[in-house]
Design a protein around this nucleic acid. Sequence first.
DNA 1: CAAGATTGATTAATCAATCTTT
DNA 2: AAAGATTGATTAATCAATCTTG
Lengths: 138, 138
Amino acid sequence: MVDTERTGLFAVLHTSGVLETRVESKLSDVGLSIAKLAALHVLAGAGESLPLGQLAERLACVKSNVTQLVDRLEADGLVSRAADPNDRRSRLAVLTAAGRKAYTKGIEIQSQAEKELFSALSTEESKKLHELLAKLGR
Amino acid sequence: MVDTERTGLFAVLHTSGVLETRVESKLSDVGLSIAKLAALHVLAGAGESLPLGQLAERLACVKSNVTQLVDRLEADGLVSRAADPNDRRSRLAVLTAAGRKAYTKGIEIQSQAEKELFSALSTEESKKLHELLAKLGR
DNA sequence: CAAGATTGATTAATCAATCTTT
DNA sequence: AAAGATTGATTAATCAATCTTG
């Protein structure tokens, strides 16, 4: 990272990359990633289980991505797949006990990291940033 | 993308993803990606050629990533590898004529897209955003 | 041995094609 | 045929290990 003068687009992309790398690095201490934590977060917030399609929708990504993400979470023992009683085409992603524990730890790490990162900005500035980003991304 | 209320960290990550997707989509019309355009940009700004290691440094990424990026650019005919006369361990990435042309087209698309995207913000707001991001990413 | 580049493995995302069930 | 999920291919990034040259 040599460049310090970046125009609009690359300023956003670059800062995002920096934050992502830092949070990712802390989460890796407990075997998590941002992608995995986000999936656990959605499941925890949906009462422990969801069909993969709905998980994809709430993660704002494509279904095939969720298939593979759940593969990895299942390999980690944090999520398991179960049959959907209502529709036999559908498979449920279910949070395991280990998954709940990992989620608690992960959320703690993430919010701590976020707090540290955003301590560079005042409350005012954070609000302003949020507002500008919302305007830009809509 | 259902969520509309995102806290600091995810606001940045999400907006970045949205911008990236939109620019990526336009660049794909001419067979380019942000990663490829960035590499062509560095090469064009360095007088057409650079050792792969230095390319990696200026792209702020790991060397093995550049090896594969240059593989793809070479397959596209936009860059070619050449021997470094000074050091036989080193390989130069050299911009081809097609690479120069693609770069010109790509930069045009990218700056047009950037202009459109950032038309959502006033000059003042863009400046403020840039300032806040710089503070956050240091 | 260290420096430069490559290879192989893994994570993450996409798209297109496929398979099963409705 | 359409919906839900999976598979296989590709892009992009990382890390660890390796090979070549200094």
